[in-house]
Simulated scan of single mutants.
Amino acid sequence: MTETKLNEIHDHWVNNSTPMRYANKLERSEFLLKYVEKYVERKGKVLEVGCNVGRNLNHLYEHGYKGMTGIEISQEAAICLQKTYPKLADDAVIINSPVEDVIKRFLPNSFNLVFSMAVFEHIHPDSEWIFEEIARITGAYLITVEAEGASSWHIFSRNYKTIFENYGFKQVTESNCKEAGLEHYTLRVFKKVGK
């Protein structure tokens, strides 16, 4: 089997984002909200890496969170976000780009919360440097919801506890995601050490 190249991963998500399929998975956003509310104040700045149609950001927004930023590689998904969640689109910053192209632009500790849901698992091994950048821009909490044991041509198995604890975080919560309809996924909440 030929090793997957970075541009193949990017092309796949640019062309196969299926945003409306993600818009209908509200139980996942409700599951995430329980953990966000436990750790992050509503006045904090929030970044979602790989926001797709914006369902998670919109759910947080509807529950009083402001200061939203999303990074999304798919133009189709970014356009869908504007049509599906116009209030969020007006108030949020949505960056239509691969994360690799924009992550270094953010200042250290720019966000009170950075999170991803089934996105970090698709980061190509050539781009693993972004995890250190994620740690750099996270001011307080980081939440990952990822399939850690699965592997395929576009899923790269990793242990996010090991990765982010190496970058100055302490895991404070771990949970399976069955109630969110995400079999074989793990939610991890990390707190930046010293914050």
Rank of each mutant, 00 (worst) to 15 (best):
M1Y: 08
E3V: 15
K5C: 04
L6E: 13
E8K: 05
I9M: 06
H10T: 09
H12D: 02
H12S: 03
H12P: 00
N15I: 03
N16W: 09
S17G: 11
T18F: 14
T18H: 15
P19R: 00
Y22H: 09
E27I: 07
L32Q: 02
L33S: 08
E37S: 11
Y39P: 07
Y39I: 12
V40S: 03
V40M: 02
E41Q: 15
R42S: 08
K45I: 02
C51E: 05
N52M: 06
N52W: 03
V53C: 09
G54S: 07
L57H: 03
N58P: 02
Y61A: 04
Y65K: 02
Y65E: 05
K66Y: 08
K66C: 03
M68S: 02
M68V: 04
T69K: 00
G70W: 00
E72D: 08
Q82E: 12
Y85W: 10
Y85L: 05
A89Q: 04
D90E: 12
D91Y: 08
V93C: 09
I94K: 04
I94F: 03
S97Q: 10
S97Y: 05
P98L: 07
V99D: 04
V99N: 07
I103P: 00
R105W: 07
S110K: 10
F115G: 05
S116N: 10
S116T: 08
V119F: 10
F120G: 01
E121Y: 01
H122F: 03
I123N: 03
S127H: 11
E133T: 11
E133I: 07
I134D: 05
I134P: 05
R136N: 11
I137D: 08
T144D: 01
V145N: 03
V145D: 00
G149N: 13
W153A: 13
H154S: 10
F156V: 10
K161N: 13
K161P: 01
T162D: 15
T162V: 14
I163E: 08
F164N: 05
E165K: 14
N166D: 15
G168D: 10
F169S: 08
V172C: 14
V172P: 11
T173W: 06
S175E: 12
C177G: 13
A180Q: 05
L182V: 13
H184D: 13
T186C: 08
R188A: 02
V189H: 02
V189I: 15
F190G: 02
